[in-house]
């Protein structure tokens, strides 16, 4: 697998983990964002093939970020990263234009499957 990715999560820990999983699978992580606002900016600047998006973040959450990214680029491919018990929020994110979701804690195989679905 290949392509460019923007990783959005307020926890450096989570970003590192996602980055490692994707990098090992052959992706290039071109940017990181620690909140929704940075994610929107970074997306506009980097135009990555894929965005992984956390839902709960300070300043601006993931769902609002999905709305703004999709508004600017309806073709954007965004994969939501949710925690257990956030079904309602995941549904909202999908309605806003996110393509798919994975649930934390991440299994690398699950993440890569979801990425394939989103890019495919």
């Amino acid at each position: 697998m290949s392509g460019t990715v923007l990783v959005c999560d307020d926890a450096l820990f989570m970003r590192s983990m996602v980055k490692d999983i994707l990098a090992q699978a052959g992706f290039t992580v071109v940017g990181e964002a620690e909140n929704g606002m940075r994610a929107v900016e970074q997306y506009a600047a980097l135009k990555p093939d894929l965005v992984t998006m956390d839902i709960i973040m300070p300043e601006m959450g993931g769902i609002e970020a999905v709305r703004q990214i999709i508004e600017a680029d309806p073709q954007a491919r965004i994969l939501m990263c949710s925690a257990m018990g956030q079904q309602a929020l995941v549904a909202e994110a999908i309605a806003a234009g996110a393509k798919d979701f994975v649930v934390k804690p991440f299994q690398p195989s699950r993440v890569l499957e979801a990425v394939q679905r989103v890019l495919g």
Binding site: D10, F13, M14, D54, I56, A83, G85, K104, P105, F106
Partner: peptide, 23 residues
Amino acid sequence: RAVHSIKGMSGAMGYKSVTELSH
């Protein structure tokens, strides 16, 4: 948000009691 972050990270690390408590 802070508790949520700890929950997410501890889940990934497999720290059961931390995850359960933060959940």
